[in-house]
Amino acid sequence: MRDMLGLMKQAQAMQEKIQAMQAEFERLDVEGQSGGGMVRVTMSAKGNLRDVAIDPSLLNPDERQILEDLIVTAHEDARRKAERLMEEKMQGLTAGLSLPPGVKLPF
């Protein structure tokens, strides 16, 4: 029974750490780029888009499709960076746990 109480305390502490980390992910910004930096997007590590910056030279109506593609590519770049950041942070948090392979936190 004593082991169960200790396990429950560990689970509660882990839940609190995960909640704190999720709040931190909302505050952390990542930037994605495309077109050699001509299009940049900034988003939270949780994926909320905060800013889009476009080089004025791309604001040609004849190149609208190129600009749209660059925005999508920059957003994808930022999303990948956010995923890597979250994985790195979660690895540090779960380092002492013996989780089964493939389990991702937060659930």
Rank of each mutant, 00 (worst) to 15 (best):
E16H: 07
E16I: 11
E16K: 15
K17A: 10
K17F: 00
I18T: 03
I18F: 05
Q19D: 12
Q19M: 13
A20F: 01
A20E: 10
A20W: 08
A20V: 12
A20P: 09
M21F: 04
M21N: 07
M21H: 04
M21Y: 00
A23N: 08
A23Q: 10
E24G: 03
E24P: 01
F25Q: 01
F25L: 04
E26L: 13
R27E: 11
R27L: 12
L28D: 08
D29T: 02
V30F: 04
E31I: 13
G32N: 06
S34G: 02
S34I: 00
S34E: 00
G35L: 04
G36C: 05
G36R: 12
G37R: 05
G37S: 14
M38K: 15
M38G: 09
M38Y: 04
V39E: 05
V39W: 02
V39S: 05
V39L: 03
V39A: 01
R40C: 11
R40Y: 02
R40Q: 11
T42K: 03
T42R: 10
S44G: 12
A45G: 14
A45Y: 01
K46S: 13
G47V: 11
G47Y: 02
N48R: 13
L49I: 08
L49M: 08
L49P: 09
R50C: 08
D51V: 06
A53M: 15
A53K: 14
D55L: 09
D55I: 14
P56Y: 01
S57V: 06
L59K: 13
L59W: 06
L59S: 04
N60D: 13
N60F: 05
D62W: 01
D62E: 02
D62A: 14
E63T: 09
R64E: 12
R64Q: 10
R64A: 14
I66V: 15
I66G: 03
L67F: 00
D69W: 07
D69N: 07
D69L: 07
D69C: 08
L70F: 03
V72T: 12
V72I: 13
A74C: 06
A74P: 00
H75Y: 03
H75N: 12
H75W: 06
E76P: 11
E76K: 15
E76L: 15
E76M: 13
D77C: 05
D77L: 07
A78L: 05
A78S: 09
R80E: 06
R80W: 00
A82E: 06
E83K: 15
E83H: 13
R84E: 13
L85W: 08
M86W: 08
M86F: 10
M86A: 15
E87S: 13
K89I: 11
K89Q: 08
M90P: 10
Q91A: 10
Q91C: 07
